[in-house]
Design a protein around this nucleic acid. Structure first.
Lengths: 213, 213
DNA sequence: CCAGCCGTGGAGGTCAAGATCGGCGTGCAG
DNA sequence: CTGCACGCCGATCTTGACCTCCACGGCTGG
């Protein structure tokens, strides 16, 4: 027996309770999916990363897609609760904007870069994935939209457009900020965007529904 | 559903000049890539869509990736020139915002839904694709950023953050607007977003640190 | 009119990756 | 001690998609 397998991440041969094994597999799958994307990620890679062989993977998940969907659901849920929590954290609308922006930044900065599964998935052709990604975007936008509609009195469709815009700003800029390894600290970036968004959104209520001009 | 195809009606066996054949192949490939995504699209599908057989496809393009990259380059270029054109179309900064927003909406509404190749690619793991998508986003943001920096006197990093945000809003909302089959007409949506963005961005010059020459 | 040539077409090779079957070792009850 | 149960591993199968090889048919020159 030569020492070919000295770089193995986890020792092979440890027996784990099923629940713990499942969690470990989810963790390994997340690392591989985040690093490689869905298509480039091989089940062999995930199994190797977890320190088990492929059959055990298939004993815990029916297939690659279900494994991916489990992770996707988990992180969609996380984003949604985070955004809803930010909106519910105060009644001051400016603080709400700030808290929501910060929620996106925190989400993007979170452990393992799991946001890539939601925002940069390469499986959007799969209807199940598309449905989940669209749904979480819509639910976030609806949560924001409710506050906007309440505050500005705009019609539902128009407040949804603005809400989608605010969510889009947060998501896109947070990803850019993370990717650019910017020297701008997170708080500063959030403050800057909050200024932008709040000035933009606060102009609406006083002008009423005639913002058409 | 047979009203869409312009290229399939061509009977098999017609001989075309090389340049024309290449254009036709690009058109067929775009339709298939847009409809199915990169991975789900098969070279057989593209060849069949064009009414030729696979070898001719490979006589015009070395492989699937190069075919995709040719389309991607084409539409990245289109977006960039469109955005630059919008920014150069006037010196009134509010009109610039409006024109840029409208450029994104027009791009998204454009023939064949080619924007999906740029904004919803499922091949972002491929470095060549990633590089192109990132580059066009950065170049658009830089173009916008220059105007912002000139107008507000903000530092480069901060104006880039705002520029990325404005580009992000345009892109995300335009896609949402298209997908939602909204009853809101395009002009109205553009006007609404322009109000939002312009109020937001116009607040900066008077507010920022003005010791900046 | 006819012979050659070149581009087209269908059938096939290769390979990667998802999904699965016969051994093995460990721990426990009796 | 011994037989059993169970979870794990090495090796394998199959599918599907990218990418080329043998026949056919229309154009050119004598």
């Amino acid at each position: 027996m030569t020492a070919i397998e000295q770089t193995q991440a986890r020792p092979r041969g440890t027996r784990l309770p099923r629940r713990a094994r499942r969690e470990q597999l989810l963790g390994a799958a997340q690392e591989v999916f985040v690093a490689q994307g869905y298509h480039a990620a091989a089940m062999d890679d995930i199994a190797e990363r977890a320190g088990v062989s492929k059959p055990v993977l298939y004993q815990h998940f029916p297939g690659k897609l279900e494994l991916y969907l489990a992770l996707l659901d988990q992180h969609c849920e996380a984003l949604l609760t985070s955004v809803r929590g930010a909106l519910a954290s105060t009644t001051d609308n400016k603080k709400r904007v700030e808290a929501t922006m910060d929620a996106y930044f925190a989400y993007v900065e979170d452990e393992g870069g799991a946001f890539r599964l939601v925002f940069e998935s390469d499986l959007t052709n799969e209807p199940a994935v598309r449905e989940r990604v669209d749904r979480v975007s819509l639910q976030c936008a609806e949560a924001i939209s409710e506050v906007i509609a309440e505050d500005t009195g705009l019609a539902r469709e128009q407040s949804m457009l603005l809400a989608v815009g605010l969510g889009g700003v947060s998501q896109v800029v947070a990803r850019y900020w993370l990717a650019s390894e910017s020297q701008v600290p997170r708080d500063t970036a959030v403050q800057l965007l909050t200024s932008l968004a709040w000035r933009g959104i606060a102009g609406f209520p006083l002008h009423g529904s005639e913002g058409h001009h």
